[in-house]
């Protein structure tokens, strides 16, 4: 079962290493981890997607809490939170296929951020499922390179 943890940490050197080391040492699997600054310069937010059973999710949370630099951990309810991910994909194009690819990009409300004679770089934002669907659709044209940011998320409302 996948869980999205939103973890507020002190913005100090080595915090990412501590979190990564903890996951490695305790044998917890990270699906994705995104980290960045927040509205407060002294605090960063990590969005960690873990694939664990209920029992070990409890362990993940408790062990994370033991890190001195971890301030707060929220297990985000998918119904009550908004989650987004961004993909950059360099897709192979030629005269014939370019317009087809652009059409797909439009459907996914993506942006073309770089164009060259043989390829275009596309930026698409959305849920992980949407990005997967996009990836599957452009794959036949040839994906030369691709990168995903991992999920970032915030709870709704309040």
């Amino acid at each position: 079962m996948k869980h999205t943890l939103s973890v507020l940490v002190e913005n100090k050197p080595g915090v990412l290493a501590r979190v990564a080391e903890l996951f490695a040492r305790r044998g917890f699997n990270i699906d994705s981890l995104a980290v960045g600054t927040t509205e407060r310069p002294d605090i960063s937010r990590m969005t960690i997607v873990v694939d664990v059973a209920e029992h070990s999710l409890e362990q993940v949370r408790k062990q994370l809490h033991k890190l001195i630099n971890v301030i707060e951990i929220v297990d985000l309810d998918p119904e009550a939170s908004v989650a987004r991910e961004l993909v950059l994909a360099k897709v192979k194009v030629d005269k014939d296929s370019r317009s087809e690819v652009i059409e797909i990009v439009d459907i996914f409300r993506g942006n073309i951020v770089d164009v060259s004679p043989e390829s275009i770089i596309v930026e698409v934002t959305g849920s992980s499922r949407k990005l997967q669907a996009f990836e599957d659709l452009v794959r036949p044209y040839g994906i030369k390179e691709l990168v995903r940011t991992g999920k970032v998320a915030l709870p709704r409302g309040k």
Binding site: G14, E21, R25, K66, I68
Partner: peptide, 14 residues
């Protein structure tokens, strides 16, 4: 040293 001891301390500082 902080890297080496990370898994065996409650906390460490550089």
């Amino acid at each position: 040293t902080t890297g080496i001891t990370m898994p065996i301390v409650k906390h460490n500082y550089l």
